[in-house]
């Protein structure tokens, strides 16, 4: 009885080790790309807010340049970005194939993505707390660290959750450069080889992954949020 309702259980069990490898690759991609995106995207987003005409230290001309640069990177469909930056990828990780090679375009895509979230979340805090901090004689750095980033923390956590979910899906395109991952697994076995059961199994795994990230992220953000 290895075939339940047309599902070849034996085949799935046979592929389980490979599923494990694929899941591992997805985790590696996310665990490298997302923290780097947060690390670089946060200061970039803060700068986008701060240098804007209504920001803490307006630099309108430079702001316009950086702002459009962010838009340019954000405009690329991920698949095209993946190919377009192959020279950069080779320079950074020394190879253009494999999981390491996918991490580079993923990260490059994620940085401006997260920077926009940071900019948006900070802008929405309103002028009141900034004005209060200025009246207390805070430096710009203190306003960012002790006021803006603290007040925006729950929103930022929500943004990280959204970004992680998006990138679970983006990472599926990693297959194009042999990057692996669970999405790539679903495409290779399920889609290309018509192994529907295997594909569905992989998709269920991805659904579980996304649900876990979203539920976990939402709970954490709610715990941090003291507005209610």
């Amino acid at each position: 009885m290895s075939d339940i309702a047309g599902f070849d259980i034996a085949r799935i069990i046979e592929l389980l080790p490979e599923v494990g490898v694929a899941l591992g690759q997805t985790f590696v991609m996310l665990l490298v790309a997302i923290p780097i995106a947060i690390l670089i995207g946060t200061p970039l987003g803060v700068w986008l807010y701060s240098a804007s005409p209504t920001g803490l230290k307006p630099r309108p001309k430079l702001h316009r340049v950086v702002d459009s640069l962010v838009n340019v990177i954000r405009s690329f469909p991920f698949l095209i970005l993946l190919i377009a930056i192959i020279p950069v990828t080779r320079f950074v990780v020394g190879t253009t194939v494999g999981t390491a090679a996918v991490i580079v375009p993923l990260t490059i895509n994620a940085i401006p993505y997260f920077a926009r979230f940071v900019e948006q979340n900070i802008t929405q805090l309103g002028a009141g707390v900034v004005e209060a901090a200025r009246s207390m004689g805070a430096t710009r750095g203190q306003i960012v660290r002790d006021v803006l980033l603290v007040e925006a923390r729950p929103a930022l956590l929500g943004s990280i959750t959204i970004m992680t979910v998006s990138f679970i899906s983006y990472s599926a395109m990693a297959g194009l450069v042999g990057g692996g991952g669970i999405g790539d697994f679903a495409i290779r076995y399920g889609y290309y080889r018509y192994e529907t059961a295997v594909m569905l199994f992989a998709i269920v795994l991805m659904i579980v992954l996304v649900q876990a990230v979203q539920i976990g992220g939402t709970r954490w953000a709610r715990r941090l949020d003291k507005r209610h």
Binding site: E131, V147, E151, R153, K226
Partner: peptide, 13 residues
């Protein structure tokens, strides 16, 4: 020191 109409306290502190 300064105080404001809408208090301008930090909600997360």
């Amino acid at each position: 020191g300064m105080i404001f109409q809408h208090f301008n306290l930090l909600n997360n502190r």
